[in-house]
Design a protein around this nucleic acid. Structure first.
Lengths: 255, 255
DNA sequence: AACGTCATTCGATAATGTCGAATATGCCCC
DNA sequence: GGGGCATATTCGACATTATCGAATGACGTT
């Protein structure tokens, strides 16, 4: 780990959290001298990764991140291949769909289809949810046992009163997910919202993403037809990626 | 400029351009020893800014960029305030709209409304266009004379046969933009597509973004009503940002 | 104008990052 | 499975870079 790069990344993370920060504030958060932080911020600014807030001394994330992110999404083979299938899934089920990938202790939504009822819905691409509190995340954890082990060794955050944070309970859930290749979550991330997710595997059988449908909790549990459509979607995406034996199997402590 | 951070940013830029690269390829592009590049890439990877391509030795941009970018967009005051106005502009004109900000020699689209005719259209947020070849970019250049000076000192790329790349011609255009607070572009970025843009100013009178409508070149030139709607949109956004004297004036060589 | 707070500059030096050599890994062919 | 080649990764000496404290400049408020 190159210390200067580590520190630069921590500046970005701090701005991601607090949005706008002055040099002194950043220095406090990072426990570094202001002049050190200044050098880091100026270097990031020169590359457009950080910007000064208009009319103020505070800094915020910069526009170069947007371009990089756009290229990231464009580069993702799984996303490109999933798009038509998840659109079709949303159409058939009348539900919104999400495609998620792993980002440390969270799942990040890399593609999202709105519910096809024409209602106003937020764009979710780029949103993260703690893995333990989402069906998508539980799938990814179930297929990456060492990542799960690390996560379950930490105190877990409750997002709602229904979030499961007990490691032993989660281990049982993950074992069930691994067996059924299906994860469920009811009101754990957002009250009134529940979801069910299944794994997407690449040519080598590695689970690289998960796909889910999201429904109002008033409509829970999902009908068998929805589960079948969801599985079919994951099978189709996985097949396009070169994996023909859906559902994938868990490889014990593979990382 | 901290060299290690500069090099890390250049790794990200290289991956942004070429999408997938091995260590040796990156080393060639950056003209650095492979072991140096390896250290940089591993540091970026530890923060999710770079990822290894599934099943290969090559690296690509990483998911942390998507989360950072999402926060960047969410943090942008001008974007939040512009959204309702540009949606209304698209509705009234029947055209797609773009809100653009400056990213070095390019304009980056930070918000986009599709043409309201229900046709299949690509999402444009995060896309960049060379400033000299876009109406949005010409507005931003006209209001930032020193940025314009720097850009016009470099050889400019033709995107289509109609792209204006002659510095003297561009200077005349930018002077006219500054005077009229309006920029036009016909087939310069994409054949068959033309646009007209106007500036958006913040509380201090600094032009921090530009807003445009895009139309098929077969419908060019824009009607007076469209221009009025566009100006009204920029005036409304600027007023929400605290600027009440639209159109803004150019401050000579202010950077 | 004065004051307090924070941003930025500067330069000595501590320590970090660099980079060449060696080793490990992956892939392809037989 | 073995061999060969190309590339990734490791290791450690040391050159160079980043750090950080002190000083100065800028900004906002009174």
């Amino acid at each position: 780990m190159i210390q200067a790069i580590d520190r630069a990344a921590r500046v970005l993370s701090s701005l991601q959290g607090a949005r706008h920060l002055g040099i002194t504030e950043l220095a406090g958060i990072l426990e570094l001298p202001p002049s050190t932080v200044h050098g880091i911020v100026k270097s990031l600014q020169a590359h457009g990764l950080v910007a000064k807030e208009p009319g103020s001394q505070r800094y915020m994330l910069g526009p170069a991140l947007l371009k990089l992110s756009n290229v990231y999404l464009d580069t993702l083979d799984v996303r490109a291949r999933a798009m038509r299938w998840t659109r079709e899934l949303a159409r058939r089920t009348g539900l919104s769909t999400r495609l998620g990938a792993e980002l440390f202790d969270e799942v990040i939504i890399i593609h999202h289809n709105r519910r096809p009822d024409g209602s106003q819905q937020m764009l979710e691409t780029g949103i993260t949810i703690p893995s333990h509190a989402s069906a998508l995340g539980k799938v990814l954890l179930a297929y990456h046992p060492s990542a799960a082990d690390e996560l379950l060794a930490k105190p877990l955050r409750s997002l709602t009163g229904d979030t499961v944070t007990d490691p032993a309970t989660l281990r049982l859930q993950l074992a069930s997910v691994a067996e059924r290749a299906l994860a469920m979550e009811e009101d754990e991330a957002v009250l009134g919202e529940s979801s069910v997710a299944v794994p997407v595997a690449d040519r080598s059988g590695t689970v690289i993403a998960a796909v889910s449908v999201v429904m109002p909790s008033s409509e829970w549990p999902p009908e068998a037809g929805v589960l079948n459509d969801l599985r079919e979607t994951a099978r189709n995406i996985s097949r396009e990626l070169g994996y023909s034996e859906w559902p994938p199997r868990v490889v014990p402590n593979d990382d």
